[in-house]
Amino acid sequence: MVRTYFLLLWTWTRAAAAYPASFALMNLLGFVTAAIDVAVILVIFANTTTLAGFSRDEVLFLYGAAALAFTICDTFVSNIDRVSSHIRTGTLDTFLIRPVSAWIQLTADRFQITRLGRILQAALVLGYAITALGLDWRRGWMIPVMVLTGIVIFGALWTLAGAAQFVLTDAPEVVNAFTYGSYQLSQYPLGIYARDVVRGVTYVLPLAFVNWQPGLYVLGRDDPFGTPEYTRFAGPAAALVLALVAALAWRQGVRHYRSTGS
């Protein structure tokens, strides 16, 4: 499975190399596009020293962790959100006649290696924030855990978005609010949002575990919403539950396609 996936990535990369656009240029542009979000944070902190009680470097830390997880998923999983366009053009069938899982084929579909620039951007911001905040490994061990948790959560979200497109063939764009919206939400400390929003993204859609809950632990801060200490460590469990739900939804989506033919 893993081997097939990387083989497909390699295939799409070579296919993209057929076009003369410079690899370096596209990566650079991806880097710059992703950096707009950082620029916004910097502009905000040109006007204030704290946002909801968090300093610039703390916000950059939360941003960097979310961005690293998200851009990795955006590169390696997000291609799945073209399901409805494949259904409309009839190309989904060509995936289904192959002896390889449709999920593997679709997440690798038209893989763009030029998105790596965005991952690099996120990694640099996270690296900067870790250094600037002087985080050490006593609490910093959580950082790789939270990035992995974030990858699983965002990967599950993209899969759910892909599964939803089996039904939402008329308006596949709706899922953008869900995927990119989740990313937008997790770029800032959840302390800025209303209590009900935060409750929703903690107990229903576990976005709080991408960076907020584990981030509070790394930064050694209390939750302004007063959740108990152990929720800082609940991320991996929440991510696994979401991944399970996404896997079931995906199976259901494929089944729906095969039973309706649309």
Partner: peptide, 14 residues
């Protein structure tokens, strides 16, 4: 083996 005359299952740019 399946062949759809209307669309290819090959990789366009390869």
């Amino acid at each position: 083996g399946v062949v759809f005359g209307q669309r290819t299952t090959l990789w366009w740019d390869l």
